[in-house]
C-alpha cells in the first residue's frame, strides 16, 4: 500500500478522472441518510459529494452493486450472455468492503462452483472506500473485526483532511488508476498522516464508548446450545415480521432461482431471498423445519454467528448496523448477542 495526497484544488479533477473508468456512483444525502446515486458531473458539483462521503455507510449495502436484488442468470435453449461494464463505487466503508471480502467472496467465489457474474463484477468494478469520522450509534464494526476506516480490500481509500484528501492505493487496479492521473496526486506530508491518525483514533474511541463490551468469544457454542425457544421468543417480542433487517443486511447472501416461461424456452431469474420468509425452509408436501418464527430467528443467528465462523473463521456480520437502524420493532442485534 502507498499513500498519496490530493490537494483541495485538485479534487474536482480527481473525480473527473475516476469517472473515466466507468459509470460512477456516489452517495448523496437524502433525508439525513446517504444513498447511492449515479454521478452526472455536469449536474452535481464535486463539493456537493463531500457531505455524504463523510457520513457513515450508505443506506444500501454494497452487495446491491455486485449481486443485485433480481438478476437474469440463464436462459435455455436460447443462448444467454451478459455484458458487464466497469463501474466505480465511491463511498463504501470498511464494514461494506469487508462484507464482500470476508462474506460474499467466500460464498460466491469459493466452494464447488463460482458465480461467474459476481466474479466478473468483482474484477471489473472499482471500489473506493472512505473513512468514517463520525460513527453512528448503530455502528459496531470495532467489536466484530472492523475499523471505522479501511486499510485493505478496496482499490483506493480516501481520508478527508482540511488541506485535501489522503488517497491510499490498495490494489493493482487502484495503482493503474492513479498512474493515469499524472501529477494530480502529490507526496503526502507526515503531518497530514499524523492528523489522520488522530481522526481515526477519535472515531475508534467513539465506537468503543457506544459499544463498551466485547462479544463473548464463544458465540458459536452459545448459539448451538441455546435451545430454549422462550429465549428466542423473548428476543423477537417486538418483531413485526417486516423482514427489513435481512433485506438490508450487507452480509446476507441467500437467493432463490425461479423460471419464467419465454416462448418455448425458459428464462431463469435469481432473486435475493431471506430466511425470515415463512416458506424458506419448506420441503415437498409442505413439511417445514422452520415453520415457527422463533426457529427462523434462531436460524439467522446460527447462520451468521455459528455456521459462518466455523466454516470461514469470521462472523457473517460486519457490524454495519443497518439491521438496527432499519428495524421497525427497535430490536438491536447487539443486545441479542450479549444476552446469549
Amino acid at each position: 500500500m502507498r499513500s498519496l495526497f490530493l490537494p483541495l484544488a485538485s479534487i474536482p479533477a480527481f473525480y473527473t478522472q475516476l469517472a473515466k473508468y466507468g459509470e460512477t456512483y456516489y452517495p448523496r444525502v437524502f433525508d439525513r441518510h446517504a444513498i447511492y446515486e449515479l454521478w452526472r458531473e455536469e449536474e452535481i458539483a464535486a463539493e456537493e459529494l463531500h457531505q455524504a462521503l463523510k457520513m457513515v455507510r450508505p443506506v444500501e449495502p454494497l452487495k446491491e452493486f455486485f449481486l443485485g436484488s433480481r438478476e437474469r442468470v440463464a436462459s435455455f435453449p436460447q443462448l444467454f450472455s451478459k455484458d458487464i461494464k466497469p463501474k466505480v463505487i465511491v463511498g463504501a466503508k470498511d464494514c461494506d468492503i469487508r462484507s464482500l471480502i470476508e462474506i460474499q467472496d467466500n460464498v460466491y467465489l469459493k466452494g464447488v462452483l463460482e458465480d461467474p457474474f459476481y466474479k466478473e463484477r468483482r474484477e471489473k468494478y472499482l471500489v473506493v472506500t472512505v473513512d468514517c469520522p463520525e460513527p453512528a450509534d448503530t455502528c459496531f464494526c470495532l467489536r466484530i473485526g472492523g475499523k471505522p476506516y479501511s486499510v485493505w480490500g478496496g482499490d483506493l481509500n480516501l481520508s478527508f483532511g482540511e488541506e485535501g484528501i489522503i488517497v491510499d492505493v490498495l490494489s493493482a487496479k487502484g495503482e493503474e488508476i492513479v498512474e493515469k492521473m499524472g501529477d494530480l496526486l502529490k507526496e503526502v506530508d507526515k503531518k497530514e498522516i499524523k492528523k489522520r491518525d488522530k481522526h481515526r483514533t477519535d472515531a475508534e474511541r467513539k465506537l468503543a464508548k457506544v459499544n463498551p463490551d466485547e462479544f463473548a468469544p464463544d458465540l458459536p457454542d452459545r448459539i448451538e446450545h441455546q435451545l430454549d425457544t422462550t429465549f428466542w421468543a423473548k428476543a423477537l417480542a417486538n418483531c413485526v415480521d417486516c423482514q427489513a433487517c435481512e433485506r438490508i443486511c450487507s452480509t446476507c447472501y441467500c437467493f432463490l432461482l425461479y423460471d419464467i416461461p419465454v416462448g418455448k424456452g425458459v428464462e431463469r431469474v435469481k432473486v435475493l431471498d431471506w430466511c425470515y420468509h415463512a416458506a424458506y425452509g419448506r420441503v415437498g408436501g409442505g413439511v417445514n423445519p422452520l415453520a415457527h418464527f422463533s426457529h427462523r430467528l434462531r436460524n439467522r443467528f446460527e447462520c451468521k454467528f455459528m455456521a459462518f465462523p466455523r466454516n470461514f473463521k469470521v462472523s457473517a456480520c460486519t457490524g454495519c448496523g443497518r439491521c438496527i437502524a432499519g428495524c421497525t420493532g427497535k430490536i438491536d442485534i447487539r443486545e441479542v448477542l450479549r444476552a446469549l
Partner: peptide, 19 residues
C-alpha cells in the same frame, strides 16, 4: 438428508444443516 434446495451448489443458503 432432505432439505429445501434451490441452487444445488452451496450458494443459495437454503439447505444449511448446522455447519
Amino acid at each position: 438428508m432432505e432439505k429445501n434446495m434451490s441452487c444445488g451448489f452451496g450458494k443459495c443458503g437454503h439447505c444449511r444443516l448446522g455447519e
